[in-house]
Amino acid sequence: MVTNVTNLGRSGLYDWIVQRFSAVILAAYSLCILASFVMNPDMNFEQWSSIFENNAMRFFSIITLLALCAHAWIGMWTISTDYMTSLQLGSSATFFRIMFQAGCVLLIAVYLLWGIQIFWGN
């Protein structure tokens, strides 16, 4: 069992399931949006924003946003632990990796807050 580099204490199985589950949500949401474009080929901004007046759609969007954040975090974390290791970068690897991961967390947090503001703000 590898314990010296952990993903915030979660198990590999948990990550694996979250990654697949969030992918399904993202796919479903993408299809939904795509379908609305196909059904309304000449959509204007009012029609577009009315879609998001619906609370169910807002809820779905928020769920998708959360899924996107989780998906991105696990993915970026994995990438950083594949490529930013002491084998490739030497002894400073841990520093670079933590910085990179901190950057990812910050960006994801910004997107999340910004998204919530768009959907639930005025």
Partner: peptide, 12 residues
């Protein structure tokens, strides 16, 4: 299985 359930051993 408990020994394999981390993000690296199997899931890489």
């Amino acid at each position: 299985l408990a020994g394999l359930d981390d993000p690296f051993s199997v899931f890489r």
